[in-house]
């Protein structure tokens, strides 16, 4: 009797879990699916009511992607359609390359400097430790929009406007506090005994870090790297005012400009959106094990 109700309860629970999972999946995936489906439709089809939920043969087109990747417009397209393919569409790829280069550099700087810093906060009691740590955290409370103009003046003094290096510096400064925060929390969860043992064996600071600390903290480090990469890939406010050419414009700036374009093609905007989120999504899928392990790591 008791066993019966328990298994009944469990069965019900499993069904509920399944239904909930399905609903969540729809909630998460539907908007993305629609962006993808739109990007393969002809311009005129996107203005049909009701919308086409599946691209059939007569409305299917690759021309939006073709334009983004090659800059070419179908010969039979009328001049008006050609005008809808605003040139910013062809800036998407250089923009993505800029974004990726910047985000990788920011990630590297975060690991290179943030990791030892997080470790230091977690392990050493030193003069001013908690004050400096709070100081780092407080920088997170600053609206980017409020420091854009001082930032512009600063960069101009060093002749760094419209350079990738400037964005790398800014994004590193923005992300480092957070990296330090989560790594500190992570290191605090690792027993200090391993490091002490390594030191007993005569390992120096660098060797201890490399041999013991980093391997033990791997999930936390990956998580920190992901957060830093995404924050840099995502940033818009600084990028939009501090860049002025393809030399440093990031994908966020390009797609925002494209979306505001006077009567830009909707299909093109959708395709551009898909192309822009593809790199991080591909990275996420490629390294899903590490990413999921990293992101679901306990920090606090």
């Amino acid at each position: 009797m008791l066993a019966n109700t328990i298994s009944g309860r469990r069965w019900r629970k499993q069904l509920l879990t399944l239904v909930a999972t399905a609903l969540i999946l729809i909630y998460i995936l539907a908007p993305i699916c629609w962006a993808i489906v739109s990007s393969f439709q002809k311009e005129s089809a996107l203005e049909d009511r009701p919308p086409h939920f599946f691209p059939t043969a007569e409305i299917f087109t690759l021309s939006h992607y073709k334009f983004i990747f090659t800059g070419q417009i179908d010969k039979e397209a009328t001049t008006m359609i050609q005008a809808q393919y605003t040139m910013s569409g062809t800036y998407i790829l250089p923009g993505i390359v800029n974004s990726i280069v910047i985000a990788l550099a920011v990630t590297a700087i975060n690991l290179l400097f943030g990791l030892p810093a997080g470790h230091a906060f977690a392990r050493y009691q030193f003069w001013g430790s908690s004050q400096v740590f709070m100081g780092f955290l407080v920088t997170r409370l600053l609206p980017a929009i409020s420091i854009v103009i001082p930032m512009y003046i600063l960069l101009q003094q060093f002749d760094l406007l419209d350079t990738k290096r400037a964005l790398v510096g800014i994004y590193s400064a923005i992300t480092l506090p957070f990296t330090i925060w989560i790594l500190k929390a992570y290191f605090q969860n690792i027993p200090v005994e391993y490091e002490e043992a390594a030191r007993m064996d005569g390992c120096g600071y660098l060797r201890t870090m490399w041999r013991v600390v980093i391997p033990l903290a791997r999930p936390g480090i990956i998580a920190a790297a992901i957060f830093a990469f995404m924050a840099a890939y995502d940033e818009f406010v600084f990028a939009t005012v501090l860049t002025s050419s393809l030399n440093s414009k990031t994908q966020t700036v390009i797609i925002a400009g494209l979306a505001q374009g006077l009567s830009a093609s909707r299909g093109l905007i959708a395709a551009a959106a898909v192309v822009c989120f593809l790199p991080p999504v591909l990275l996420a899928i490629l390294f899903r094990k590490q990413v999921v392990q990293g992101l679901t790591t306990r920090f606090a």
Binding site: T240, V241, S245, V253, A256, L258, L262
Partner: peptide, 13 residues
């Protein structure tokens, strides 16, 4: 050389 931004951002730019 041309430096451009989207029309909506141009004022800010």
């Amino acid at each position: 050389t041309m430096s451009d931004s989207g029309y909506g951002d141009f004022d800010t730019f």
